[in-house]
């Protein structure tokens, strides 16, 4: 147990903070502790959680990706055009096209990183601009509202009428998100490939010497993020019911902040699915709570930014001073 807490210090902290926050919001507001609110939280966080599942794998393998959110916009547009030219398509086709398209974009990043030895932040800042610029150029910034029904219809998987007459419901993106979380957990926590990814991010030189295939690591990490961003793009359209080319612009930094808050380390080797989920949810709950407390929506981001800043400062300082005192 001690090892469990020691190895998962970030997760333990996040659970404690989330619980305290939930307790406070339950007491301070009437609506927070309700089924409707909880299901809403899940429905709105689903897309970010899927993105986070992809990004955390890249961070574990020692990379970083700035381009994934605009890549998801590219996937959305390509998928919409492809499906419409195929006469509308269906969910199966949608997942295949979006998934493959996402993987292809991820592979572009991986190829540049591996074959030309360019570090991931340089590559992905370049591809961020290339993807976004080309998308806006070719689409002329025009949105697509005329989507196939299967795609834009809200699919409610589970609903329940509460005593007050409000409906608590879980939609398709939540199910898809759960599957993505499970698969990512399986990949990084319990497969040989996932442990190789940790090892590669943790100590690349040692990984090379024990015979880990570097190219495979880059393609798997960025390919997985590609798959996730494809799926996230698909789900975001289902949620928003339109394809807007710049809808996801800027999302990359929000997701990055949440994933890192969840304990993933820039530089590799550290990060868990649980931490990621907690990081995304903590930010979502904070915004939700501020909303319920009647704080102006304009102030949400400010508070979230301040919380992350304080969290980063405190977590680093406390570790630092502890280490100093022991030494």
């Amino acid at each position: 147990m001690r090892n469990l807490v020691r190895a998962n210090a970030t997760e333990t902290w996040l659970i404690l903070v989330t619980l305290v926050l939930c307790l406070f919001l339950s007491l301070a507001t009437e609506q927070f502790f309700s089924l409707v609110n909880f299901t809403d939280l899940l429905n709105t966080s689903a897309v970010n959680l899927i993105f986070a599942m992809g990004l955390v794998v890249v961070l574990i393998a020692g990379g970083i990706d700035i381009s994934f959110a605009v890549a998801a916009s590219v996937v959305q547009y390509v998928t919409a055009l492809a499906l419409m030219s195929l006469g509308g398509g269906n969910w199966a086709l949608g997942f295949i096209v979006a998934g493959l398209c996402g993987i292809a974009l991820g592979a572009v990043n991986a190829a540049l990183i591996h074959h030309f030895r360019i570090i991931s932040i340089v590559v992905t800042i370049a591809t961020f601009n290339a993807f976004f610029g080309l998308l806006m150029f070719f689409t002329r910034g025009v949105s697509i509202y005329n989507l196939p029904d299967w795609w834009s219809d809200r699919i409610i998987l589970w609903e329940y009428e509460t005593a007050g007459g409000a409906w608590a419901e879980l939609t398709l993106p939540v199910l898809v998100m759960s599957i993505c979380v499970f698969l990512t957990w399986l990949l990084i926590g319990h497969s040989s490939t996932g442990r190789q990814l940790y090892a590669y991010g943790d100590n690349p030189e040692a990984a090379r010497r024990v015979g880990i295939n570097e190219a495979a690591m880059q393609y798997i990490a960025f390919g997985w993020l590609g798959l996730m961003l494809g799926i996230a793009g698909l789900m975001q359209v289902n949620y928003a019911q339109e394809v807007v080319p710049n809808a996801l612009f800027g999302r990359e930094l929000d997701v990055l902040a949440a994933v890192v808050l969840g304990g993933a380390r820039l530089g590799g080797g550290r990060g868990t699915v649980l931490g990621c989920v907690l990081g995304v949810l903590l930010i979502a709950i904070t915004e939700n709570g501020l909303n319920l407390l009647g704080v102006s929506p304009y102030a949400f981001k400010m508070v979230v930014g301040a919380i992350i800043l304080v969290a980063i400062t405190l977590s680093n300082i406390s570790l630092e001073t502890l280490v100093r005192r022991r030494a």
Binding site: H190, S191, S192, R195
Partner: peptide, 24 residues
């Protein structure tokens, strides 16, 4: 050439994790 973030057991038995074919 060890992996500081991984467990002692994983570091010692790392060879069992190698190979291209993914497995549990």
């Amino acid at each position: 050439a060890l992996f500081p973030e991984m467990t002692v057991a994983e570091n010692i038995a790392f060879e069992a994790l190698l190979g291209a074919r993914p497995r549990l």
